[in-house]
Amino acid sequence: MAELEVTEHISRASPGVRTKTTAWERQRNRLTLWLLSAPLAAMAVLFVAPILVLVWMSLGGGSQGAPFDGYRALLQPVYLRLLGFTLQLAVVCTVICAVLAYPIAYLMVNIRSRINLWLSVALFISLWLSFLARTFSWIIILQRRGVVNNFLVATGITDQPFELVYNKIGVYVGMIHILLPFMVITLIPAMKAIDPAYMRAGLSLGASPAQVFRQIYLPLSLPGLVAGSMLVFTLAFGFFITPAILGGGRAPTIVLAIRDQIQQLGNLQLAASTSMVLLVICLALLLAYDRVSGVDKLYDRGGR
């Protein structure tokens, strides 16, 4: 295994040198292609084709509208404002998730104890529960006569219950709770792949623990953090039910507008155009990330 990696590294290191393809390599290539054919076909049918249909519909395919009617309608201030708010919601959720998830993942990777087990149990149970059930649970906890407010009023900390739900606070609490596990489970493999020898080496060479963390651990875990952020951002950007219910009508998102475009207006072209805009924004982020740190690093073995 180790030997194989070494040879790989050597061949990567000298791309200019063309080695002769042996029969073994040709056979291996054929096998790779053959193995890939099923997933590629699935990707084409399940992902590429529907997106092409969406593009076609957004340009007026299947409806009476002129090709750019849908995109032109999107320039109305209301859609721009909803888009802006949804972007802000997604960015804030992503940042808070990153800040909260990082120490959790760090503990889960670096501490060997029962706590570790309980952390995993808590994480996965919350991941398995339905979005809707978790959303309603937050209402029970945060409402005016909910657990939190009852406690605060009973202990005399406040005499009027706080408005914790049916506004933006409720939306952020609910969304972060739902999205946090995705960030943690993306960070864990990235952190597990960091060789502790690097930190020991840094420390033995006289760096302070803070320096070791900042200059070694953090950069090595960065691909995981970025991958997790992209995952959380994409999910948050398309979030529907949680902001709709916990927001109490005060946090309308662009996804809500898409729902109305389909169900109330029956305007598939406009809905497809709006969806395309969301897709393009997410793709643009992916490309930006590629420029900064390389998409292939997402699948790399944790910065080794």
Binding site: Q76, P77, V78, Y79, R81, L82, F85, G249, R250, P252, L256, A257, D260, Q261, Q264, L265
Partner: peptide, 10 residues
């Protein structure tokens, strides 16, 4: 109505 309603709500 729908876009104006969304605007009003937002």
């Amino acid at each position: 109505v729908q876009p104006r309603w969304l605007e009003w709500m937002s």
